[in-house]
Design a protein around this nucleic acid. Structure first.
Lengths: 136, 136
DNA sequence: ACTTACGCAACTGACATTGTTACGTGACTT
DNA sequence: AAGTCACGTAACAATGTCAGTTGCGTAAGT
């Protein structure tokens, strides 16, 4: 798979959960539906649980469920929970001795931060409930 | 190095070239200044040459030079030449059978395309000559 | 001829990510 | 109480990407 497979898996899973919010789903079911592995599902959904978007229960009739109403979960929430940012937040060495390079990176970084801010703003405008409605 | 090292190298090199546009530089010099390898420099600058931003000459007193005035080269030109897009342009399998997944990806993709468009717009507002002036 | 410097192909090693196996733990069922 | 179900987590293998490196060819100039 490629780089944004975690995001794909998260969107896909939460989307389906939103259509039937009260039915818990096991990682095995989700994995089968998404064509991947239960452990991978638990890994990805685990980060969403840490972000407060999902709950998980063990044992019989356990599994994963939405922690809030689908109308309260935006695409931005999912994007931010997965922590796959546009900008590589490690600004370690590139300011070593060259003022030109420093100016260059500062300019690009400023633009990128603005862009990411507006990306999040755009993503937070649609909830997963919205998506389910438009998909009919 | 990390993922945007090609962009860093390109920006850095073009920035320095802009301060003295008529002096050709060899890949060995550039590599030494950037702390990398001449072949890597040729790889990266080669893509910029294909995009029409640089020229290269072989033999004695050969090397790399800007193909245009520094005032005509924007950050967007460099970004686009390196082809490191925000969106993974391979929309191969994710629309296989699930209309919900299709709607999800369509929504995210639309937002991402908008965002990238505005990123390019922002980057095209500053030329490398601008950077050299602000770096004094 | 000889040197210089790019062009390009092939290989290596580091690194990240996904997939897989294995085992522990909590919760429910009988 | 025993059994099962499902998550939680660690460890490892498989894969892909990318920078780095070596080597050789080719063009331009001395």
């Amino acid at each position: 798979m490629k780089r944004n497979s975690r995001l794909s898996l998260a969107l896909h899973t939460l989307g389906h959960m939103a259509t039937e919010p009260d039915a818990p789903r096991t990682s095995a079911d989700i994995a089968a539906h998404a064509g991947t592995n239960p452990v991978v599902v638990r890994r990805v959904l685990g980060t969403l649980r840490k972000a407060g978007l999902l709950t998980s229960e063990k044992g019989h009739s356990g599994g994963w469920q939405l922690a809030k109403s689908p109308r309260e979960i935006t695409l931005a929430d999912i994007y931010l929970a997965l922590d796959e940012r546009l900008i590589s937040t490690d600004d370690a060495d590139h300011g070593h001795n060259c003022s030109l390079e420093h100016a260059l990176h500062h300019q690009v970084l400023t633009v990128m931060e603005d862009i990411e801010r507006s990306l999040i703003e755009r993503l937070s405008a649609t909830t997963i409930a919205d998506i389910c409605e438009t998909a009919t």
